[in-house]
Design a protein around this nucleic acid. Structure first.
Lengths: 244, 244
DNA sequence: CGAACCAATCTTGTATACAAGACTGATCAG
DNA sequence: CTGATCAGTCTTGTATACAAGATTGGTTCG
């Protein structure tokens, strides 16, 4: 609850959704404490809460790590998202015009990031769409649940190197909003189910997750700096999180 | 993660599901520390995690309290449960025979507690049915989510003094299991939606939650001892939680 | 008699100290 | 040159001390 802990929690989740924090990344208590200018106590509080949310896990006396979902976890997370997101759309009766406008604007933003080739911003926006949609539904519990589930599936995508055809995803989003605007909630639900299934199918869950994925990215020329590089001043560079 | 913290978390959630811990009950750090024989540090860890799960909240420098869901929260929690539980049943393809047997046994146990007039055990079992069902579905994320949501709706029932016709609930459970055994998953889903809606409709969400409900129960003759009575040795008396 | 005020007590908020285990790198034996 | 061993360092685990706000009960004044 303390403002600092909250800000740490949000930073971590936002960074995951934006693809700036990879699965398996170590989050050192002292380092985070220094970055946020707080004591280790606060950092630990935030980590405990993130652990309860299934975002990080602790390895005894080694540190906190962003979770690395197993293939089984991945399937369960996608199934949960399908069930909840499609269920929300199906349960919908009416969508206010301004909510539709808001969603349209979001999809438009996705498109722009896509055209501009902004990978980080694009990843963040594609995940954010689902959270916005949950927000539109108006059930705060489901919104929170979906934020965490979406964070997990984002980690899954990073781990199992999805093809993740961003353009197709954005097209799906566009069509879902169109169906909502038409009042075809069953259709929107069906498309959402199909959409999430498509993302899941794009993954290679049979593949052993590559433990060197992070390292490789660091070593590849032109790659963005590692978020936890020694002299990194800002916690997670390129923070581009929009409003909730 | 530390064993003690985990045990505290489980104790609290189990006690809520059993109706032994009322909304608004204060959980003092020192008292819990003494009860569990651990330091305040561990207790705080457990409370932080429970806070992240929406089970308790902290009032600055006053203490930790079991959440008291507002009418809005109540509706949202029931809606979330309906959506997820019905969704799970609808998504079901096949239920192993032993799972059906397990559920039947559970309903039988409900019936027995009902006939014996064991209120605490009955409350616990009625809530546990839904968690068992989630477990049967086999998605651990959804199971965890539903456990917390069920804890919340249990709190809601206590706050808004539901009629909560236990016998009817158990009948519903029985029929749901029968439909599952028949392979009529859509029917089971529809009945589940109706069942949860019925429980919700039994509440008086318009009523201002009675802030003295807990006190009244304590003062009424023959009431069970207050869980946090001064000389209470065990944390939550009558602990009767089954396996997960 | 009642209301406001104030001190004593209790409870959480936060930092810090120290213990214990994990890791790293050097050293040494084969 | 390779592999094992071991000391030093780093990181988390845990307890405790103390600060700050909230509550409570008594006291005083009108």
């Amino acid at each position: 609850m303390t403002l600092a802990s909250d800000s740490i929690e949000d930073s971590v989740v936002t960074a995951i959704l934006a693809g700036r924090l990879r699965p398996g990344t170590r989050l050192g208590e002292s380092k985070l404490a220094e970055i946020y200018g707080v004591s280790r106590t606060r950092v630990r509080e935030a980590m405990m809460r993130l652990e309860a949310r299934g975002i990080v896990h602790v390895s005894a006396r080694r540190g906190w790590f962003i979770v690395e979902p197993s293939a089984t976890d991945a399937r369960a997370a996608f199934q949960a998202r399908r069930l909840i997101e499609a269920g929300m759309l199906r349960a919908l009766h009416h969508v206010p015009a301004d909510a539709v406008a808001h969603l349209r604007a979001h999809v438009e933003e996705e498109r722009r990031a896509l055209d501009a080739g902004q990978v980080g911003s694009r990843t963040c926006l594609l995940g954010d769409f689902h959270i916005h949609l949950a927000h539109t539904f108006g059930n705060p519990f489901l919104t929170d649940i979906l934020r965490d589930l979406t964070a997990r599936t984002t980690l899954v995508s990073m781990l199992y190197q999805s093809e993740q055809h961003a353009a197709e995803s954005s097209d799906d989003h566009d069509r879902i909003v169109a169906l909502l605007a038409d009042g075809d909630f069953a259709g929107a639900a069906a498309l959402m189910d199909e959409h999430i299934r498509r993302v899941e199918d794009g993954l290679d869950l049979a593949a052993t997750p590559d433990p060197l994925a992070g390292l490789r990215e660091i070593l590849s020329p032109g790659a963005p700096a590692f978020p936890f590089a020694a002299n990194s001043n800002t916690a997670f560079p390129n923070a581009g999180g929009e409003e909730t």
